[in-house]
Nucleic acid binder design. Sequence first.
DNA 1: TTATATTTTCAATATATTTTGAAAATTCAA
DNA 2: TTGAATTTTCAAAATATATTGAAAATATAA
Lengths: 168, 168
Amino acid sequence: MKLSDARQQFISSWGAFATHWGINRTMAQIHALLLVSPDPLTQDDIMAGLSLSRGNVNMNIRELVDWGLVDRVLLPGERKDFFSAEKDIWKVATQIIKERKKRELEPMMKLLSQLEDVEGDKKDKEIKQFTETISGIQNFSKQADRMLDIMVKADENWFVGSLLKFFK
Amino acid sequence: MKLSDARQQFISSWGAFATHWGINRTMAQIHALLLVSPDPLTQDDIMAGLSLSRGNVNMNIRELVDWGLVDRVLLPGERKDFFSAEKDIWKVATQIIKERKKRELEPMMKLLSQLEDVEGDKKDKEIKQFTETISGIQNFSKQADRMLDIMVKADENWFVGSLLKFFK
DNA sequence: TTATATTTTCAATATATTTTGAAAATTCAA
DNA sequence: TTGAATTTTCAAAATATATTGAAAATATAA
């Protein structure tokens, strides 16, 4: 397969894939483009490469920088800003886990603890089911939270090595 | 907090939460409603409980059944279909993992293996970066795939227990 | 059968999200 | 300073997604 076709297919599939994960297609495509680009790109490079408007590229690049997946790079002698993606996929994954934990899991856990106690007869069927469901989700979330913390803190080689040994 | 308010808040937050994960708000709200309902509900119960049209409830319930998160229950002597959600959150999670693996991770891995080989000079900077990125994602996906398989096969207590012991 | 209850479908509509592009703001060399 | 290059903003337009509701299909009791 030719490089240009392979790149094209990677970028477009990565974008489609991302929409199943609550991430906007364009943001994922820009990320994909930067992942396969050996050198940093400008906004204009991205506009041209993906046929997008300036505003669109600007907004999505900013989101990628907010997520810690892309860095703004200032090249000496260049007027324009350049952008470069973290290429180590393990780092990409831990960065995403870190952010989603902070943005989603932690607020959800906070809400659950507010819903823990409801007024009324603990024997009531409706109340019982509600509190059981909430505490079930709470337990699960706490496990997940702990496990994700460990993954994020762990060094890639240590983690993968240990996991493989552990799971044989 | 009153049960009715707590239920309301749980359902609405669960729906909002789900949109960050590529799941449609209504589907998640129906799921939440069933999770806190001790007895199975009919389409009409759900329509009334969440103020949704018949068609909308029908389509989203079907999706939930497809995902294996909700069962259609036939009560003796009742004409209508009833629906009931799996209440064990661990089972819910493994079911979701299983489905997403099949629907998303596996097709992605298949694509990556098609993109593994590109024509041209292996020393070329662009080709080098492309193949490195693809193989990095491939390695990561393989690890994730293996780990998720184990989680899905594992029994909750065994898994959580071992994990905690392992991670101390 | 036939009549009625229930479920499913799907075109039309409503809503939400994404994208554009031009104007405003900012940066920076001279 | 000034002004050209660059980035950012954001209202309007385009696109995509979700929802409705009534008609069609299906299931069930009599």
